[in-house]
Measured scan of single mutants.
Amino acid sequence: LGLPKMEVFQEYYGLPPPPGAIGPFLRLNPGDIVELTKAEAEQNWWEGRNTSTNEIGWFPCNRVKPY
């Protein structure tokens, strides 16, 4: 089972920042694999864990694709 995984195809370094105070941003590099921890199809921002860095944070969902 486990959490859904997504592959990063466009880098994200915190700009634009996540809206409001939902949480810290998650740095993404192309090729990184992100395990989704909070993701809803109608939301533009998802939370996940970058398996390369083990960091957890928020990122724009348009930077990832199904793994």
Rank of each mutant, 00 (worst) to 15 (best):
L36Q: 00
G23K: 07
G14E: 03
A21F: 06
E11G: 09
W58R: 03
V64K: 01
Q10N: 06
P30W: 06
L15H: 07
E7D: 02
K5F: 07
E7T: 05
T51Y: 06
P16K: 02
P4L: 15
E55F: 05
R27D: 07
E40F: 05
G14P: 00
G2N: 15
G20R: 13
I22H: 10
G48M: 03
Y67K: 12
S52A: 11
M6R: 07
Y12H: 00
Q43F: 08
V8Q: 00
K5P: 05
E42S: 11
P30V: 15
I22C: 15
Y13V: 12
F25Q: 06
P24L: 05
N54I: 01
N62T: 11
F25R: 07
P19A: 08
L15F: 14
F59D: 02
P18E: 03
P17H: 08
Y13N: 14
E35I: 10
Y12G: 02
F25I: 12
L26F: 03
Y12Q: 00
V34N: 02
A41I: 06
Y12K: 02
W58A: 04
K65C: 06
L36A: 06
R27T: 12
W45P: 02
N54Y: 07
P24C: 12
K38L: 10
A41Y: 04
P18Q: 01
L1M: 15
E47S: 08
I22S: 10
E40C: 08
G2I: 14
N62E: 14
I22G: 10
Q43V: 13
P4V: 15
W45D: 00
E55N: 12
E42I: 07
E55W: 03
P24G: 09
N50W: 01
G20L: 06
E40H: 11
N44S: 15
I22D: 08
T51N: 10
I33P: 01
G23W: 10
W45E: 01
L36W: 04
I22E: 09
A39P: 11
I33A: 04
E40N: 05
A39W: 11
E11A: 07
F25M: 11
E35G: 03
P60A: 00
R63Q: 04
K38E: 11
S52W: 05
C61K: 15
F25H: 14
N44E: 15
W45V: 00
P60G: 02
C61I: 06
T51D: 11
V64H: 02
W46C: 12
R27A: 05
F59A: 00
G48P: 01
G2Y: 15
D32G: 01
R27S: 10
Y67N: 06
G31K: 09
K38Q: 13
L3K: 10
I33E: 05
E42T: 12
R27G: 06
V64L: 11
G20F: 06
R27N: 08
M6I: 07
I22V: 15
E55K: 12
Q10D: 06
P19H: 04
P18W: 05
Y67L: 14
P16E: 04
K65E: 08
K38W: 07
K65L: 07
L26V: 10
Y13S: 13
Q43W: 08
I33D: 04
K5H: 10
E55G: 06
P16V: 01
T37D: 04
K65R: 15
P16D: 04
W58Q: 00
L3E: 10
P4F: 14
V34F: 03
E7N: 04
G57V: 02
L28C: 06
K65H: 09
P24N: 08
R49G: 02
Q43D: 14
G14V: 01
A41F: 15
F59V: 03
Y13H: 11
L15T: 15
K5W: 05
A21V: 07
P18A: 05
P19I: 03
I33C: 10
E42R: 11
I56E: 05
I56W: 09
M6L: 06
T37V: 10
G48T: 03
N29Q: 05
N44M: 15
G14I: 00
D32M: 03
V34T: 00
